[in-house]
């Protein structure tokens, strides 16, 4: 996993967090059911986390109450759902898209797929610029249509209420996570094999496993939850800073970025270089070879800063005793 030529200062911390979250949120999959029964946790929704279709999941991903609230019309549950979505929005504003790279189990799966591909010596498929821009819009389109369909069903005057049985939770029906978790549970015997699994969900699952294997983080590029987060993730409390004076434009940040977030390379004014695509995984900060060029910050505090590399077998860095001349 760690075959790079520079230390993985951030990923070393990220992997345990991801594993811990995976075990906690998807505990039901592995037979750990103790946290699954707490009713308190069931009312707490995270921006993107566990799945509704896991029998004993402690909490759900917020996209479920959003759709559910809109579909059931403007009843009591609607107010409930809006309240929950508001909490989630506040969380997103505070932490940005950090959910994607530190919490989301589906993102973790994709990272493991990328690692596997690297182990198998297959180069990643790099998307063309036009395709990247297109995919960037797709996530907003999915978000828009999900909300549109949910609202249309919810408004009784439109007379679509009878379709609720088939079109309730429109996104969940196509979400690859549903297929993924349902199949796992059926194999494990946690839920009966007769549980409905739409054909399209299986197709989406296979499609995204295939594409995410060859292109890094393919699902993340079209994920509507990511799209919702991207709406608010302009400048969160956790943010990516670039000191443009130190940038040599070597393109390393762009090459290693799993999301092909080009602002980190192209933006040549000192300041925030995060944005709608940046999931704050910190890979660019790990790999940047300039002292203090990129850094991951929490408010005004620097969490980690890019450094000139210490390559394997090159010993300690020499520091001089004499007074250093600085302008």
């Amino acid at each position: 996993m760690f075959t790079s030529f520079k230390g993985r200062q951030i990923r070393i911390f990220r992997i345990p967090v991801q594993i811990a979250v995976l075990v906690f949120l998807l505990g039901g999959l592995y037979g750990v059911t103790s946290f699954g029964t707490s009713p308190l946790l069931k009312r707490v929704f995270l921006p993107n986390a566990s799945c509704r279709y896991i029998e004993s999941a402690p909490t759900y991903c917020f996209f479920y109450p959003l759709q559910d609230g809109l579909t059931t019309g403007f009843g009591g549950y609607f107010i409930d759902a809006i309240f929950l979505v508001l909490i989630v929005t506040v969380l997103i504003i505070i932490l940005g898209r950090i959910w994607c790279s530190w919490i989301c189990p589906f993102g973790f799966m994709q990272e493991l797929l990328s690692d596997l591909r690297n182990k198998l010596n297959i180069p990643p498929l790099r998307l063309k610029w036009t395709h990247r821009v297109l995919l960037r819009q797709v996530k907003y389109a999915i978000l828009f249509f999900t909300v549109l369909i949910s609202i249309s069903i919810g408004i009784s005057a439109l007379g679509l209420t009878e379709t609720q049985a088939t079109f309730a939770l429109p996104f969940c029906q196509v979400c690859p996570a549903k297929g993924f978790f349902t199949i796992f549970q059926q194999i494990g015997g946690i839920i009966p094999p007769s549980t409905t699994l739409p054909f399209i969900a299986i197709f989406m699952l296979l499609f995204f496993i295939f594409t995410s294997f060859f292109t890094r983080m393919f699902w993340c590029r079209v994920c509507p939850m990511g799209g919702y987060m991207a709406l608010f993730a302009t400048r969160s409390l956790v943010w990516l800073y670039k000191d443009a004076d130190k940038c040599t434009k070597c393109r390393i940040c762009l090459r290693v970025c799993p999301m092909d977030h080009d602002k980190v390379f192209e933006h040549m004014k000192t300041g925030d270089v995060g944005g709608e695509d940046c999931t704050l995984c910190g890979k660019c900060v790990e790999m940047c070879p300039e002292d203090g060029c990129l850094s991951l910050n929490f408010m005004s505090k620097r969490l980690t800063v890019s450094r000139k590399p210490k390559f394997r077998g090159t010993g300690k860095r020499i520091s001089i005793k004499s007074e250093i001349s600085r302008g």
Partner: peptide, 26 residues
């Protein structure tokens, strides 16, 4: 010797890309 070669993905074509970019862009 101003810039190091930073290799991320370790298959030959990606290493060559890293090398090419190191000698060109900075």
């Amino acid at each position: 010797l101003n810039n190091p070669v930073i290799v991320d993905e370790t298959n030959t074509s990606e290493i060559i890309r890293a090398l090419a970019e190191r000698y060109f862009f900075p």
